[in-house]
Design a protein around this nucleic acid. Structure first.
Lengths: 347, 347
DNA sequence: TGGCGTTATGAAAACGTTTACATGATAAGC
DNA sequence: GCTTATCATGTAAACGTTTTCATAACGCCA
């Protein structure tokens, strides 16, 4: 069944059928009815490839996700896909891993697939971009690029991000102002947002005139699934004599490891150890005690990013950068007084 | 840049360029080199839409996932996407939700996109299929369908599944044989595998001649993210006077709720309450105590399902049904003696 | 050197749409 | 009733591949 068959059955030309299919106003109502009736009878749907060839688009958008099995990134993909689908786009998903070269390969694949745009989710390394010829530059100009949780000044690149710097700064200040000065900052990514978070922590220390000790900023190199690995990692630090009364983690999963570490070593939370995570994911309520965490408004960010994407694709002028604030959600692993945000407001 | 431009530059016909692009053996090596040189110089890649039109495929496969933000389903999507990509396919992802009608709509979208196959992940209701005209029937015959964790006898439909019945039966037997007889079965899905799990539990009760009480099979209707909601739900049951010394959950998230419930009510785990989850996800190690759970070999299932898919698409004859066994992984929320699987082997 | 099988190449049709342009029909204004 | 603007429809080209079929080139053997 193709458009010729339909046109023959309806006694019109293929142009008219095409006009009916595409909702052109210049079709006589009676003709439209006649054509629609034939279309419905045969359950005809136009061939998407031919359509793509004619229009040079299949209304598809590529999502390059570092790791869609990650709790946080999976949520991002979910929100983005849903939002795009509601607007008539379909999503081609590819998981690139965290490696830069693999990301470039994924992007090349997307371009070959002739997607209208690409949305990058997770781990947008800035090192590559500062060189000026990373994957961002390769793609810019051909199709627009949309980055979640990254900040980049590049034509045809749009970003939606949480102000991770400020969020982490506020969390750090809240911790310090609750009386803890030896905070272990634990992180597991050198991504753009990962580095911004670290900067936030350092900035808070400087603001309160606390020395920023190197051994209190620890990089965890293990799997994102291995909470026990984090626990062991912390036990190792303790054995080496490192003293800390708070763990500030760049991800909830690290914070969950800290909670297990405390349990294993008989350390009372929050009396002897405060723990703050990041993302405010399911892990924070699963953990016992529940983990204080920073909510970075993922859903809103995703929504705004896709809204920007859709706007750009329909020719509107859109802001290249959208920034939201994170929110510290206190649960059971901290005792921040009097209110977390009020206390952090000393800056 | 199109194939004509390349052919002109290389001084050959477009047919030859096409042959070079598609690795046809009937091309003189010197000609091949000449053409490749031009292709590389201009960085030419063939237009995927035109290719799709000619070949009637763009090598893409649809993934319909009920909810890709769900920890378990996200993992499935991740494994499937990775495996398909390695084999030259790209994935169009759509999240359908758990509603049957929305699933049909998603399937229609996929067919319009002319995917080569569709893989369904999560919540494949059997009610619709038994009628004989559910979404399975609509699609069968046009393109092959692949179901994760479902069992369906339908031409052109292929399944990979864990024997949830046996896994849950064994877990139940292990619990009973460890001395618990009042097991609360907690579930949150009427999906195919959900019902099979329930059957497994009931079967175990009958095997050990324990009455299968209706109020010990509780359906939790809340959000899959709301662990606290599960906790409240259980508190409600307790208030109503329901007595149980074990919670057997159809998902880890429900088990995590049970652990919180125990903590809230000062119930010792596993002494006064045993808890078993399902999926052996990150939640089981995040929870405190860690949750005994059934591992249903998701990665293997996904791998086998995509292998079947690729085989079918390349014309091979593949088995319509692949079944694996689950494995009970004991952690801290149970004390099953002597070994979980040995004890369960009484059947 | 002629005949023949094999290999390499080209011409042209096919895939199924959209759309610019042309044209026929209809209505409005005088 | 004639001109003119508007609306409805049709014709044909364009999109960029793949592939069938025909043919030209080549090597081999007698």
């Amino acid at each position: 069944m193709n458009i010729y068959d339909i046109s023959k059955q309806a006694g019109v030309s293929i142009a008219t059928v095409s006009r009916v299919l595409n909702g052109s106003p210049n079709v006589k109502p009676s003709t439209r009815r006649k054509v629609m009736e034939v279309i419905d009878r045969y359950g005809y749907t136009p061939n998407a490839f031919a359509r793509g060839l004619g229009l040079d688009t299949m209304n598809s958008i590529g999502i390059i996700c570092a790791d869609s099995s990650d709790l946080y990134l999976a949520k991002a993909v979910y929100y983005i896909e849903g939002s795009l689908r509601k607007n008539g786009y379909n999503c081609i998903l590819t998981c690139s891993g965290y490696d830069h070269g693999d990301k470039e390969a994924a992007l090349a694949l997307m371009l070959n697939q002739r997607v209208d745009a690409v949305i990058l989710v997770g781990s947008n390394y800035i090192e590559a971009d500062r060189e000026g010829n990373g994957y961002i530059m390769n793609a810019a100009g051909r199709i627009p690029l949309f980055l979640l949780n990254a900040d980049m000044d590049c034509p045809n690149v749009f970003c939606a991000m949480c102000d991770d710097f400020k969020a982490m700064q506020e969390a750090s200040l809240a911790l310090i102002d609750s009386g803890v000065t030896d905070i272990l900052y634990l992180y597991n990514s050198h991504s753009y947002s990962g580095l911004r978070k670290l900067d936030g922590y350092r900035s808070a220390c400087r603001m309160r005139e606390i020395p920023v000790a190197d051994d209190l900023m620890q990089f965890y190199d293990g799997s994102r699934e291995d909470i026990d690995g984090v626990c062991r990692f912390l036990c190792g630090l303790r054995k080496q004599g490192l003293v800390f009364h708070a763990v500030l983690a760049s991800e909830d999963m690290l914070a969950a490891g800290a909670v297990k570490y405390a349990k294993l070593n008989g350390i009372a939370i929050p009396e002897e150890l405060s723990v703050i995570g990041y993302n405010n994911s399911l892990l924070t309520t699963c953990s016992n005690p529940e983990i204080t965490s920073i909510d970075n408004q993922l859903e809103t960010l995703c929504y705004q990013l896709t809204k920007t994407c859709i706007g750009v694709l329909s020719g509107e002028k859109m802001p290249p950068k959208i920034i939201y604030s994170g929110e510290l959600v206190e649960k059971e692993t901290t005792r921040l007084s009097p209110g977390p945000l009020d206390a952090a407001d000393g800056r």
